[in-house]
Design a protein around this nucleic acid. Structure first.
Lengths: 187, 187
DNA sequence: AATTTCATGTAACCAGTTACATGATTCA
DNA sequence: TGAATCATGTAACTGGTTACATGAAATT
């Protein structure tokens, strides 16, 4: 009965944002629906329960402001454990599984790194990411070749192959971006 | 109490694959774990219940082969209703929401189009997609400008901004791919 | 006076994940 | 003979979605 469940993307987004600046559930919701960060979430129905979970696990601590007032706000901030957990999560190695199943999670991790880890760590992350993306491109290219060799039945347009070509392109774009980001961080 | 729940991505993937060629749950599972199509799914625990749902809704029909044998296979194929539903789903307009929240779903739809709809429909889809991707690029660029203007606190590396730049790039890549695919379909 | 915004939540539902169960058949 | 593969499933858990509830404060 270990309490080491991996944070969901939504939880990571929340912890990251709260770490950058202590916030309330309401403000998180607003932020999610008004910025591209909203990619990871939605609506009170997900955010408030997540905040509670994180508080219960000791990752966040909420303190009520204006308790006496009729409209109290609960401002969350990260605990020491929470900050440790966040750092751990951000510096976890880039795995192929992440790249294939959780690309967005990788980008989310990266987006918080500036506030949490040093430049060396960030460069390592980008380098790994680029290398793995290259490998993924090669993998998909071999699938593509197999598909081309197999051909499509007469009268069927090759949209399946083109969709796969998009996948390949998207990893190429990821690798390109990672290298450009590396250069930019090196000035 | 209408029975018009939108198919999930997994259900769409299954219906599409079964439409291309009648298949069993087991073969779908194998296919999902051995090809990039596996991006949409996983494991028996999701596939078999999905097959049952789709059969109950009249989208697929399963017939048992080797019923007398000790190892029967249940081969699913699409019903007429299923094929209509599939076509409807594939030709639904490309919305901004799809682009932002369900890019993979769009690509999945596209990948089956070759077997289901005509060239004109496919071209329209790609044209719409490219146009909307362009719009999304402009939108994210304006967020990027805002972020650059706001700047990052001293000592904080601009990973947030770089992550957003990746988002922008990925939509640019999508638009580029859509136009290239269009050209290719036009010979 | 009416509407919108602030602010926090709950409850039902639903689909995917993980892990397990079953047992025949083929292969080493 | 023992392991891997064929083939189909179930059950518990979990987290997100949708929709609703509440009510004060600010805006129009």
């Amino acid at each position: 009965m270990e309490e080491n469940r991996r944070m969901t993307s939504l939880e990571l987004a929340i912890v990251g944002l709260v770490h950058v600046e202590p916030t309330t559930g309401y403000d998180l919701c607003k932020l999610f629906e008004s910025t591209p960060m909203g990619h990871f979430s939605s609506s009170p129905g997900a955010v408030y329960p997540a905040l509670r979970r994180l508080e219960k696990r000791g990752v966040l601590a909420g303190r009520v402001q204006h308790a006496s007032s009729l409209r109290p706000r609960k401002v969350y901030s990260t605990t020491r454990d929470g900050r440790r957990l966040l750092k751990e999560r951000l510096t976890a190695p880039v795995t192929d599984d992440d790249l294939v199943w959780d690309k967005e999670d990788l980008l989310l991790r990266f987006s918080f790194m500036g506030y949490v880890v040093g430049a060396a760590e960030i460069r390592r992350f980008l380098g790994d990411l680029a290398a793995r993306a290259d490998a993924r491109v090669r993998e998909l290219e071999s699938h593509l070749r197999a598909m081309k060799a197999a051909g499509t039945p007469a009268g069927v347009l090759p949209t399946g192959r083109l969709a796969l070509a998009y996948g390949t392109e998207s990893y190429r774009a990821l690798a390109r971006w990672a290298r450009r980001a590396l250069r930019e961080l090196n000035h």
